[in-house]
Computed example of a mutant assay.
Amino acid sequence: MSGKVFGVALGPGDPELITVKALNCLKKAEKIYYPATQTSKGNQDSFSLVILKQLDVEECKFVPITVPMSKDRSHAEKAYADLFLKVQQDVKEGKQVAVVSEGDISFFSTFAYLLDDFKANSIDFDMIPGVPAFILGGSAGRLPLVTQNDKLLVAPDLENKEELKSLLEQNQTVVLMKISKVRDWIKDFIAESKLQFFYGEYLGTEKQFTCTDMDNLKDRKIPYFAIIIFYGNK
């Protein structure tokens, strides 16, 4: 059998939200590469591994892709280059391998950084989609993300209140992800704007927390795995 690579989406955290196709692929794969973060203290942290361990998949297949926590993107780029070489060798040996990512495989995914190399080297691959966190957020918030002709924007790492205000004037719904840069001012913006919003962190996991009012959010420390959905120009 010829080797092949599968980009497999794990969903937002709830193991029941992985697709049947994705789970079947992981069961058949001979290796499963998953993203992990190396902290400054040398510890390894992986949201993907937490999901994988809840699935009916052999743990002996799991191989970490370790990326140090750093603003210097060269560290991440080296990790992706090393991963490509490992996957390329697996394919040459005829292996069926999976590279997983939480959420959807084409949405802020590690797999995206491998696509150009796969195409340039004629490596056969498929991508299996999944549920991203903001889609789960729409359901958890019990409100539609969009209806009829509404516009929805997903925005990471905004710089300031003015940028967010401008986006909300142009779109009916704005989803904030990777919100580490907005932690210092986002609560003030919510209080000032008085817009309807949904806040969710660690969605789909046992640590899930959600709220739709400032009283429950104002004293809360916002983690990396959090999203905010604003329902603006409706």
Rank of each mutant, 00 (worst) to 15 (best):
L153V: 07
F47P: 07
L143K: 10
Y113P: 13
K41M: 05
F197K: 02
E169A: 07
E169M: 13
Q148N: 15
A112G: 13
T66H: 10
L158D: 00
N160K: 03
K119N: 10
F209Y: 09
R183I: 02
A76L: 10
F84Q: 10
S2F: 08
K221C: 13
S139I: 05
L52S: 00
F84P: 14
K61Y: 03
I105N: 04
G13V: 15
T110Y: 12
V5L: 06
Y202I: 14
Q96V: 12
P156E: 02
R73E: 03
S101Q: 09
Q170G: 00
P12G: 15
A81E: 15
K161G: 05
M1W: 08
K194C: 02
M1P: 15
A9C: 09
K194I: 01
S48P: 03
D45Q: 11
K78L: 04
F225N: 12
D116V: 06
Q196N: 11
Y113R: 15
L52I: 01
F84C: 11
E16D: 14
D116T: 13
I229W: 14
S193Q: 04
F197N: 01
D116E: 15
G130F: 01
R183S: 02
D188R: 07
V154L: 04
D117G: 05
K86T: 05
E30I: 00
E16T: 08
I179Y: 00
K151L: 00
N233R: 15
E102H: 13
I186R: 00
K53D: 12
K234C: 07
E93V: 10
R73Y: 02
G13E: 07
Y34D: 00
F225Q: 11
M1G: 11
K95D: 11
E192R: 06
N149Q: 10
T205P: 07
S40N: 08
L26M: 04
T37Y: 10
D150N: 03
E192M: 06
L167T: 12
A120L: 11
F118P: 14
M214D: 05
A22F: 01
Q148F: 09
V175K: 01
N24I: 03
P15E: 05
E206H: 13
A81L: 12
V63Y: 04
V5T: 05
E77C: 08
C25L: 03
T37R: 05
D56T: 01
F47S: 07
I186A: 00
Y34R: 02
R183L: 01
I32L: 02
H75Q: 15
Q96A: 04
L83N: 11
D188A: 14
A9Q: 07
